[in-house]
Design a protein around this nucleic acid. Structure first.
Length: 132
DNA sequence: CCCCTGACCCTAA
DNA sequence: GTTAGGGCCAGGG
């Protein structure tokens, strides 16, 4: 492992997957929230790229990540992903409208304080999403 | 090396 | 409440 060049093994992608895996069952997080939690403030698009690189089916609960507007983001090249995401979310008790809108405020994930402090301490030294 | 696009976010109208 | 525009970083042609 330790291949920085290949996408899936990149450290940034790993952090994204590890943080997404921390999202509890039945709760939601936004791309910007994940980016901020891994110390990459403002790199929400890169989180989306990392999830796009993910090979499906995956153990990572990628369906719990939505955009800040509370809608399911459409992924290019994967027509069925939005439908799959909707099915997975409804299976966890989250109602999803046909247009992709969902109650983000009611199911938003509140990270533990310990995690937030760890992010704050690491973010001071870590640059951002730029590979180091 | 320049240009364009992308599973986004924020602000303004 | 919604839609439109600009900005953000990274990858591919």
């Amino acid at each position: 492992m330790a291949k920085e060049a290949t996408g899936v093994d990149a450290p940034f992608d790993r952090r994204v997957y590890a943080m997404v895996a921390r999202i509890p069952h039945g709760q939601l997080a936004t791309y910007g929230q994940i980016a901020e939690l891994i110390g990459a403030w403002g790199c929400a698009r890169q989180v989306g790229w990392a999830l796009r690189r993910l090979h499906l089916p995956s153990e990572v609960p990628w369906h719990r990540v939505v955009n800040a507007q509370g809608r399911i983001a459409m992924s290019p090249g994967r027509e069925g992903s939005d439908w799959m995401q909707r099915e997975l979310l409804m299976a966890e008790g989250i109602p999803v409208a046909v247009d992709g809108r969902l109650p983000l405020a009611r199911h938003r994930w509140h990270p533990p304080l310990a995690l937030l402090m760890a992010v704050a301490s690491s973010a001071a030294c870590e640059p951002s999403c730029t590979k180091g």
